[in-house]
Nucleic acid binder design. Structure first.
Lengths: 219, 219, 219, 219
DNA sequence: CATGAATGAGCTTTCATTCAT
DNA sequence: AATGAATGAAAGCTCATTCAT
């Protein structure tokens, strides 16, 4: 309900379009996150936003368009956050490390965004999955690049055991699932989460149980 | 017309209850898989099942109950399939290997079941996620046990870098995501899929790029 | 409200589909006639029919389909009535005479049908005008045939003053407009109406004012 | 920016009221002609006019009033055009002839006006039909006068076969319908159209097929 | 004068659910 | 046992209309 929105019943103050659009999108993300695309009702969104339904339709279009706008905004934010967190000119493992931390920080601070993107956008038929899968695709490509660059340095070819794309997909999936798991087990700090993944992925169980542990060096 | 018994329009044959229930559940799983919970309509389910709507309500209850029944049946099947695939009295890594292969075989042979369980049940608010998460929980526990048994053998305590539950969650998540990815990239055989995961998880990138590769021994 | 329809609020008696369809169509024609296509509301139609809205949608489809059904039924009735009224094997002028009388009798007895067909169906954009214009086209063709057969007997060619189609269109238009005018001046009997038109069309003002008058002979 | 006066976005030039009203009415007629009264939206009218909606309300009132204004203006124009075309002090048939030509010329040059008046105004319930029927009434009276003057000269009384009003209504209806038909068959010149009607009405089929043809004399 | 911002009210349509046969 | 017939309730969307600047 933003900051109390408008006292219900009264005609809303006149505000510039950009402000209203933000209010609406915020409300929409919240409602979509809570109920999912289908069960979310335009009525609830409009109430939450403190704005009448016609404004929503006039500014952001029908329900589908509104959802698309939400997805675009949130995936943009996520992408920015991760890219801002990654440092270039550091070894691949450190890049991964920083990316993961940024990702988990984002999820922690924007639970609703993540819920909409991961839990809801992917399951609704239609053009929505496409948007999110594009984002996911970028993540996978990024990781795949890291992996392959490592792999090719050592002369690994195209064996069954090694497929950059496949491994990257698995890694990204693991990160996503862990984020999901985190939503219901939020007492773990984000650094630890990233740390688990790094160890799992970089060293594997085998080395791990040997006491061999990956740790971030420098910054 | 009097003694013909089976006439009058298209009145369905009197069938034992168990058979009808199966027809209905099969249809429901198919329709839910295709449209998702909310967009699936009782009408379509009844048509697909070749059974009138009142029968559905009388046998399996309202839409929610019906969905719950679907989830229970399919998660039971998945669990059975995986448990049947696992061999006891083999080393932990081989247990994981067999479990993964059984899992992917199930997904390949029952795409609809998997779709309902993974894509749809988790995103609908309500008691459904609980059902599936229980299943997922059992999988995580199972994996965690393997991991922890390895870990404790080597004296690893509760350090930040090592949490059986967390790692298991990540692994299970990776396996699920890879299954999802597989639905749209089905040209990879299930053995290879399992192989990727094993290498990723057991050895990690680091060993992998050293040319060190995990391979199933014996059966 | 048909014959009191159902006492409002009570669940309607179970009736065979055909009966309900008729009720609905009757109500729809009445409501469309009164308000026109756009202003007619499905709510009013359903109330008038004594049937809930979902039945309308299930039996006759959406508003457009419903309107189409109305038009088809009514134009079919009009066509039948006129065709039943025309006698073959009588001179052309007598055919016209009988056709006109049948037409006006129909309009008198089915004011609503005529209103829907003439006043409303023609002005709504979409496929509706097509349906009615097809009917009108048949009427024009029929008249044109009469006219042309007369004309060609006398050796009239294609002069500017004589175009079967054009004249027939004018005649049909005159008949329609007179019907419309009649709706608001209903004290004239239908025979007289037809008589006016016959005189106007067959003899023209010129002969008329000479005292020359057309009159129906025999049957 | 302060003294620039005409700035800030797209704020329309301050224009005298009469000009604005014309802009609005022109747009309204165009939009009403295209979509009909109900489907025309105030939004589209305001966009077409290049004027904001509040101006429309302030200058010309609500939708109904606006439509009334349209009808008044256009029917006035039509009336003027026809009256200007008629010559006094010529025989009745020539008066009719000139009136018809003027009418068809107007329709040709103002298709939208005619569409609004004939196709739309008549079918909307409410006060609109009244406006147009008043116009039509004047046309009918005018024609009736011609007819009756002819008739009474010859001593025709009030017989069933002869009613000035009825005949005039039929004639006017025929002219209108022919105009409508013309909208979709515009390759016929207006003179020919008028010529058809004159022949039909003045001479009738009977004389026509005898080779007797009405032709305009002098101017 | 002129308008962007705002909404109440209403419409069509659909769906899960139940009754009567 | 089995179903066609029936509906309450709600959702998405649009429109004519007005207020505040």
């Amino acid at each position: 309900m933003a900051e109390d929105a408008q006292r219900s019943g009264e005609r809303a103050k006149r505000l510039p379009r950009a402000v209203r659009e933000k209010q609406i999108l915020d409300a929409a993300v919240a409602v979509f996150a809570q109920h999912g695309y289908h069960s979310a009702s335009m009525d609830e969104i409009s109430e939450t936003a403190g704005v009448s339904k016609p404004m929503i339709y006039s500014y952001l279009g029908a329900k589908e368009d509104l959802f698309t706008h939400c997805i675009r905004r949130e995936s943009g934010r996520l992408l920015e956050a991760v890219q801002a967190g990654i440092k270039v000119d550091v070894p691949p493992d450190m890049q991964l490390w920083h990316g993961l931390r940024a990702f988990y920080r984002f999820v922690a601070e924007h639970r609703e965004s993540w819920t909409v993107l991961h839990r809801h956008a992917l399951t609704v038929g239609g053009p929505f999955a496409g948007e999110v899968n594009a984002l996911r695709g970028r993540a996978i490509d990024l990781v795949a690049q890291l992996v392959v660059s490592q792999g090719s340095r050592k002369g690994l070819g195209e064996q069954a055991e090694f497929s950059g794309k496949g491994l990257a997909a698995a890694l990204v999936g693991a990160a996503e699932s862990l984020a999901d798991w985190w939503l219901d087990n939020s007492d773990v700090p984000d650094g630890v989460l990233a740390s688990w993944l790094m160890n799992l992925i970089w060293l594997g169980f085998n080395d791990l149980v040997e006491g061999d542990v990956w740790r971030p060096r420098e910054s």
